[in-house]
């Protein structure tokens, strides 16, 4: 099927098979930040934004995304750069494999909840598994960014 997808702001028109999954499509287009960590839609590693909403690219047919806009971390660099340094300052990235999905979902979180509580953060990111960090350092990093931003605003 011939589809047109806006991937990170760039229109791509391409023939894809009916069962092509979005994760494979974006990786084919060199968006290597998008990772596959399971086959059961549980890990959140493959999170991308579809028309601004976080979704699992492993569970979406590319055909279904025809006419829509997809953003991977490659297309969200500026927004990510605002806060990932705070996560790095905690040493929270560890192996890094789950980071892109977590960072993309954090972008979605911060757009939806400009001033989230710790509980909001945990809830929103609960679908992003991480085996290295124990999660607390990620939370500290996001919290440090939010505190910084508040201080900045004051």
């Amino acid at each position: 099927m011939l589809i047109t997808i806006t991937l990170n702001g760039k229109k791509i028109t391409e023939e894809v098979t009916a069962d092509s999954l979005l994760i494979d499509f974006v990786r084919h287009h060199k968006c290597f930040s998008v990772k596959r960590g399971c086959e059961t839609s549980n890990c959140g590693l493959c999170t991308v934004l579809l028309d601004g909403k976080p979704v699992l690219s492993c569970s979406l047919l590319t055909c279904r995304v025809n006419g829509h806009s997809v953003q991977t971390l490659e297309g969200l660099q500026e927004e990510a750069k605002e806060f990932v340094g705070f996560i790095a300052n905690q040493g929270a990235e560890q192996c890094g494999f789950c980071n892109p999905g977590m960072v993309v979902n954090t972008i979605a979180l911060l757009r939806e909840y400009p001033d989230p509580s710790d509980e909001d953060i945990r809830q929103f990111l609960s679908g992003n598994l991480c085996r290295c960090s124990g999660y607390e350092s990620q939370l500290r990093g996001i919290r440090a960014y939010l505190d910084f931003r508040k201080g900045d605003a004051a």
Partner: peptide, 9 residues
Amino acid sequence: IVGVQFRNL
């Protein structure tokens, strides 16, 4: 149910 990304689908 799993996570936001799952429930958006």
